[in-house]
Design a protein around this nucleic acid. Structure first.
Lengths: 256, 256
DNA sequence: CGGATCGTTGAGTTGTATCAAGACGGGTGG
DNA sequence: CCACCCGTCTTGATACAACTCAACGATCCG
């Protein structure tokens, strides 16, 4: 029953397995992609707004953030990148990048040339569909963040963000016993939610005080999953995961 | 010099012309798509959150909005749909819809079956790329709205929204002499910016008082384009239009 | 051990929400 | 054709969520 066959250990396939179905031939083709593997320190730029990259970046290990700055120098984080993600896949069809991408932890990334990706898409239409679908899911997450930032108050907003973080971690096999690796600082949390660092701190203490989570260092532990979900008005539909029920039920076990 | 050949009158081609290049053969194939044309009244749902549509909706005439509701009943508008847009193209690769789509004016729409679209994409890779690119531009706009909602104050936020509305209108040939058809109510404006109707009204009067725009009924007139752009911290890069300079210079003419 | 980054707390300020009520305007029915 | 009605726009008063500024404590790392 466990989906552990010879491919499942690679982060890209874990990620793609969580959102679509691919044949072994297609998976083999993905693993055969030539890529330039690079190790990066934390808080280092990968690509910057205004660049015209000819390759995209597959995140093999670590976490990234995708963000954009206001003219007044305020930063909005648009997305967090998890292992297996290709955070700048959009540059395949968008010549000039309108966002920057940085690491938030030390990362191992693989740069894949756009010709390689285009060739793969034309030879394997299912892979093209999977990549397109992946960018559509990213867009769906952007919309949910817009709803979150525009319409929910900060307390609920943070609860929602953490729910998403947990479900996405779970989907690619990260986290044990209701505890997850959460490397973001409170400043990054604030920039992702459109609130100040100070307020992020206060709201976080609200969640702690309500007994929903504990968060020490980079260890985030869910103490009351149902409570967190309802505080965050969270419905995972927008993540468009396969087997949602399975990953969620395995969550409720250790959480409750 | 004018790009008016036999295809340019159709809204879909005007839209696609603004973001990519297609051959005459591809354009002919697009125009030959079978579609079910329907007239809709204003403020009518087209598809709802939770639907599993087997077709997408090409907007031939009128304006739509794409939105999502909070558990507490607050609405966030994610995007406005212009003539030529396919606001729910994403349903081609996302089984269950996580947003609702409604008209905001009377509309003429053409429903196109997903098999038709898939067939077209497999026969004409350039069309597949154009559609994929279109959804990526939508995502880019979502990100800019996140930045707008999360990091800019209401006055600047509204100025930015109007700048985008004007440039997008301009890109598909709507508007004359700095005047544009803007059918949104102040309530819809507020829901798009994450502020209340009352505050949308006050901020709008701020823009009027600063001499940047006039807006009576559905007629929005730009009085000071450079002023509006700088109030909104607006840079159109994220719209990924072809020939940006051309459409913007023609704007400055009647505007100033 | 010193310095930098991150987390935490307090006090005062400001942007925006809510509630309420009136004015305007366009459509419909008597 | 007028009267009415409903949705939208507008304005005022009050309340609150979140911001800024500032300072201090806790870590971590070199």
């Amino acid at each position: 029953m466990a989906p552990s066959h010879r491919f499942s250990s690679h982060p890209l396939l874990r990620k793609l397995d969580s959102i679509c179905t691919l044949s072994d031939e297609e998976k083999a083709a993905l693993l055969a992609m030539p890529m330039q593997v690079v190790d990066l320190r934390s808080h280092q730029d990968i690509v910057r707004e205004g660049d015209r990259p000819s390759r995209s970046c597959l995140l093999l290990e670590g976490f990234t953030c995708f963000f954009k700055m206001t003219g007044e120098g305020r930063r909005q984080i648009m997305a967090f990148g998890f292992p297996g993600d290709i955070p700048d896949l959009l540059s395949l069809h968008l010549d000039v990048l309108d966002n920057s991408l940085s690491t938030i932890t030390p990362c191992k990334v693989g740069f894949i040339g756009h010709e390689t990706l285009r060739d793969l898409c034309s030879r394997f239409p299912q892979i093209a569909s999977a990549f397109w679908r992946d960018t559509l899911i990213d867009a769906s997450i952007f919309r949910e963040w817009m709803l979150n930032i525009g319409q929910r108050e900060a307390y609920s907003r943070l609860a929602h963000l953490l729910c998403e973080f947990i479900v996405r971690s779970q989907a690619i096999g990260l986290g044990h016993d209701g505890t997850y690796y959460a490397p973001m600082t409170q400043g990054e949390l604030g920039d992702a939610m459109g609130i100040s660092t100070v307020h992020a701190n206060r709201v976080l203490q609200g969640l702690r005080g309500a007994g929903l989570i504990s968060w020490r260092g980079t260890q985030l532990t869910v103490l009351d999953w149902d409570g967190l979900k309802s505080a965050g008005d969270f419905d995972p539909t927008y993540l468009h995961l396969r087997e949602q029920t399975e990953s969620l039920s395995s969550l409720r076990g250790p959480g409750a």
